[in-house]
């Protein structure tokens, strides 16, 4: 019987500082077979841990087409575990379980609007990277961060813009910033969103209500709005009850849900 709690060991191959609080870790499974067999769907997550510091869920944020070579996670210092992970160096090891959850729908075509708030850009990145040469995929990205220093993956925007339209906004005016200032909802006043678009949202819980309002105003169908739900996930397999959303589990049936599935569940959004 498969033991879903059995972690595999991954080795840190690269560390890239993204912002003062966020590091991008490139990981590779210690066991070559584990790496070769590793596959994930954009939007899925893994449980990453350190012995004696337990585990926490992180979105896999690399290109899914590279998953047989390595994979990446973005870690913001937020608690004991992440503080410790930030102290790790190249060739140090982490434990990994997963991937878990459903991931984004895999047959996306047409106008795709990705909306990321803060760290919410992280789970969207594999979708961006995997669809750079996808001609059936017209990508518009809305990304908002607090300040200019908080913008993630800044060195990749030029490449992304070859295949996507990227609109940035900052909550606060920052020196030398010539782009939009204001919450992510203000981007809807500048860029028209097609009513036939498929929207994919990922951000802090507070963002969803307001962005959904804007999407509904633009005429999007409830079934075409997808959200990634953040919840406390311990087991990853829909047993421990921490991440329940109505009668579903964010770790098993999610973390990606359509607005249609969620709108009548109290407390889901």
């Amino acid at each position: 019987m498969k033991n879903s709690y059995q972690p595999k060991i991954a080795v840190i191959k690269k560390i890239k500082i993204q912002t003062p609080e966020v590091k991008l870790f490139t990981l590779q499974f210690k066991n070559k077979e584990d790496q070769k067999n590793f596959e994930f769907i954009p939007g899925q997550f893994i449980e990453v841990g350190l012995p004696s510091f337990s585990e926490a869920p992180f979105a896999v944020c690399s290109n899914p087409n590279d998953s047989d070579k390595n994979f990446q996670i973005c870690v913001r210092i937020a608690g004991q575990l992440t503080k410790k992970i930030h102290q790790l160096k190249i060739n140090d090891q982490l434990t990994v379980r997963g991937p878990f959850g459903n991931g984004f729908p895999n047959n996306l075509t047409g106008n795709i609007l990705l909306i990321g708030g803060g760290l919410g850009l992280v789970p969207l990145r594999p979708l961006i990277l995997a669809n750079q040469n996808n001609r059936n995929f017209k990508m518009q990205i809305f990304y908002g961060a607090c300040e200019a220093k908080d913008l993630l993956f800044q060195n990749e925007y030029k490449i992304w813009q070859k295949s996507a339209n990227l609109a940035l906004t900052l909550d606060k005016q920052c020196p030398n910033w010539k782009g939009n200032v204001g919450l992510i909802t203000t981007l809807f006043d500048k860029i028209k969103v097609d009513s036939s678009a498929i929207a994919i949202l990922c951000g802090p819980p507070v963002m969803y209500k307001f962005v959904i309002q804007k999407l509904k105003q633009a005429g999007l169908d409830d079934a075409n709005i997808f959200l990634s739900l953040e919840r406390r996930m311990h087991c990853g397999i829909g047993v421990c009850q921490h991440c329940s959303v109505g009668s579903k589990y964010a770790c098993k049936h999610g973390p990606i849900f359509s607005y249609q599935e969620l709108k009548n569940i109290p407390g889901a959004l």
Binding site: Y5, P51, S52, F53, S54, H234, C240, Q241, H242
Partner: peptide
């Protein structure tokens, strides 16, 4: 039956229990 997963380090360095 709900549960949480936690690590309990032992006194010996690098040893413990999940």
């Amino acid at each position: 039956f709900c549960f949480s997963l936690t690590d309990q380090p032992c006194l010996n360095k690098d040893e413990g229990m999940r």
